[in-house]
Amino acid sequence: MTDPLVEIQGLTVRYGSAVALESVDFAIDRGEIVTIVGPNGSGKSTLIRAILGGVGLAKGRVRKAPGLRIGYVPQRLALDPTLPMTVRRFLGLPRRVAPATARQALDRAGVPGLGERQMAALSGGQFQRILLARALLEEPDLLILDEAAAGLDQPGSAAFYARIEDVRAETGCAVLMVSHDLHVVMSASDRVVCLNGHVCCAGTPDVVAETPDYRALFGEGTHGTMALYRHHHDHRHAHGNEHLHHEEPAE
């Protein structure tokens, strides 16, 4: 068993007097797909920022494997209209890539021939694919996706999830995905962690068969890329953060 790529112990993060995360333990291993779910304001993005090194830690520690390469796909990228940016140039940020490599990356992302297009002129789905393609050019050990499928419709996010599965199979990189959808997660997730300021519960998603119920819930065309996650919290919330979803009774 090798050391985890990222190991977090007893992490507490505060913004002024507000506590964003409290005593969070978390780890992700090589090649693992982990989905973090939680309502808005539950500290999901803060956890990611702590891994990237963008927030001060009030308590605890974040340990990263030496030489860890992270590919990051942000929730959204607000491109200032004064900044001209072709797809081709964006793929070469921050490290320039050879034209052939860029072309190949676009082909693999399913958006061939878009290299000369302005980033601002892309559709939501194309934009997400380009963000992912750029992150993959960094040849990451760990791919971090912050609500990367949030703007996509169901077939769109199904296609996106399928692509992530392929990426893991091809490159063996670990995937850390954040989602605000509490119940529907990517079925290939090895683990699901429910966060609400602290870790509420963790487990594996239920891979639901192609039953009529499932179809009614997800619609056609998701090709089994989505699954349900059943929460099993055994506590009530101390700091007034009511869960937005149904909680199973404590056992």
Binding site: G53, G54, I70, L77, L93, P94
Partner: peptide, 19 residues
């Protein structure tokens, strides 16, 4: 130049790339 550009685009994107 490249580091400045990446940080201008998105600070978290820059951090992930070690900038």
């Amino acid at each position: 130049w490249s580091a400045l550009l990446t940080a201008t685009l998105n600070p978290d994107l820059a951090r992930a790339a070690g900038i």
